[in-house]
């Protein structure tokens, strides 16, 4: 998701349509934030302010919710996000080796974005597909039974495909 797309109007429009879909009550805050996050790629500060205004909730409280949940993020991310499951089942089925391979291939530690803005690498807990561990999720796609050897061609599919 390119940050330059995030004009003020764009943010306002996104927040408004999310509120229309989920309501203007305080309890709508998580569905609204989820939807805004999904549309914009992350939650920039102006979006949090906008959500607070619509739901008549202090921005501090909006931020406290936004910073609590893993599916909500207040920092911009790379064009593609690779999430690796670090829970025990995946770990014992080869997650350890995969972890090193991702770091070596992308050249970044977990939680960081590559300097060219192409990849963000995130560790996550169980993705619920442990039968085929180790598992990674790239954007919305899940990949199981992954080995270090299969990693590079897989990543190349995203960067070369012109997506």
């Amino acid at each position: 998701m390119d940050t330059k797309e995030l004009s003020v109007e764009n943010i306002q429009k996104t927040v408004r349509s999310a509120c229309e879909a989920h309501g203007y009550e305080r309890e709508a805050i998580i569905p609204v934030l989820l939807e805004v996050n999904r549309t914009l790629g992350y939650l920039p500060t102006p979006a949090l302010v906008e959500v607070g205004r619509h739901l008549r909730t202090p921005v501090s409280q909006v931020f406290s919710v936004a910073s609590f949940y893993y599916l909500l993020t207040v920092e911009p991310r790379g064009k593609h996000v690779i999430q690796m499951c670090e829970s025990a089942p995946c770990h014992v089925m080869g997650g350890r080796q995969l972890y090193r391979a991702i770091i070596d291939t992308l050249g970044i530690e977990p939680g960081r974005t590559t300097p060219d803005g192409k990849w963000t690498f995130i560790l996550t807990s169980c993705l619920g597909t442990c039968g085929v561990g180790p598992v990674v999720q790239i954007d919305d796609d899940l990949y199981g039974n992954l080995t270090p050897a299969k990693l590079k061609p897989l990543l190349a599919r995203y960067t070369n495909g012109g997506e």
């Binding site: 009550e25 305080r26 309890e27 998580i30 569905p31 989820l34 609590f68 949940y69 807990s125």
Partner: peptide
């Protein structure tokens, strides 16, 4: 109601807090 990524929300009182926003 959709969760937003937090293991602790499986605990019943945390889950209730989360539904309340």
């Amino acid at each position: 109601h959709s969760g937003a990524g937090a293991y602790i929300c499986g605990e019943e009182t945390a889950l209730i807090e989360s539904i309340e926003g």
